[in-house]
């Protein structure tokens, strides 16, 4: 499974699929992989994204206006798997679209598409019995969130059932950019390490090269979500793939990672300016 984090820090890039449209999402995803993203989180738009801040809410609304569904996300995953066999692909969704699709049917389709793992924002380990069974049958890595508010006993349970990596939430709150990283993230990663050998990715509020490098000091990977989505929003469909490639390059170069060669055309967005 290509959920390997070879470089340090590795980069997990979140995209809301269907924003600004499905064809653009494909081009953006390919550009992100080519620029150096190790894992893509393919965000399934949902009408009621309670864990998300305004940037991803707006992206979800745009994607839903385009009529994008979980089925479209899985088709795109299959396409990306053919085009970029080494990229890590994670479906990132709220639970209801998956339940409506059918849990078993979804897992079968995701496996068929070549998806590596699944993260369901509102699925907690205590409710995950059948979910974990279905994931196991279809060789999908269940990825769970760990929060600064999760006590050790929960972290242990989360670590026990996770595969691929554990997603550590950097701070108490919803998704979205912030000025500085809190100490919550480092403490949480240290607590998690006691219970797991899996790589740990830190996400929520990581929006610039400084954050990215700082997370690299204590975690295996950083997740860039709202900042990328904001860059896409700002660039528009046509310029978004380049904007995303440059953004990723701006994160990787300062930490000495060889970034891919994006096609350098159009205006250069300033990564730090994406903070809300």
């Amino acid at each position: 499974m290509p959920l390997h984090f070879q470089s340090r820090p590795s980069l997990v890039a979140y995209l809301t699929i269907g924003d600004p449209d499905l064809a653009a999402s494909r081009a953006i995803a390919l550009a992100a992989i080519d620029a150096g993203a190790d894992v893509l989180e393919l965000g399934v738009p949902f009408s009621d994204p309670v864990a998300d801040g305004p940037v991803i809410q707006r992206a979800s609304e745009r994607a839903l206006r385009n009529g994008v569904t979980l089925r479209d996300v899985l088709s795109l995953a299959a396409d990306l798997r053919r085009e970029r066999p080494a990229a890590g692909l994670v479906v990132f969704s709220y639970l209801n679209p998956i339940l409506r699709f059918g849990l078993e049917e979804f897992c079968a389709a995701a496996e068929q598409a070549g998806v590596d793992g699944v993260l369901v924002t509102d699925m907690i380990v205590e409710e995950a019995h059948d979910y974990l069974d279905a994931m196991r049958r279809h060789h999908l890595a269940p990825i769970f969130l760990a929060a600064p508010t999760s006590p050790d006993a929960r972290l242990e349970r989360i670590a026990a059932v996770s595969q691929g990596f554990v997603y550590a939430i950097s701070r108490v709150g919803i998704t979205g950019a912030q000025q500085s990283l809190t100490s919550d993230a480092e403490q949480l990663v240290a607590r998690l390490r006691r219970f797991t050998q899996l790589p740990i990715a830190v996400g929520f509020g990581i929006s610039n090269a400084d954050h990215f490098a700082a997370v690299g000091q204590f975690a295996d990977a950083a997740v860039i979500g709202s900042a990328l989505v904001a860059a896409i929003e700002q660039a528009g469909a046509k310029a978004a793939p380049d904007a995303v490639a440059r953004f990723i390059q701006g994160l990787l170069t300062p930490v000495g990672r060889p970034a891919g060669e994006p096609d350098l055309r159009g205006p250069v967005p300033e990564p730090a300016a994406q903070s809300q």
Partner: peptide, 12 residues
Amino acid sequence: GGRYVPETLVAA
């Protein structure tokens, strides 16, 4: 019923 929430809320 049950509990389908972001992990951050479980402790609360």
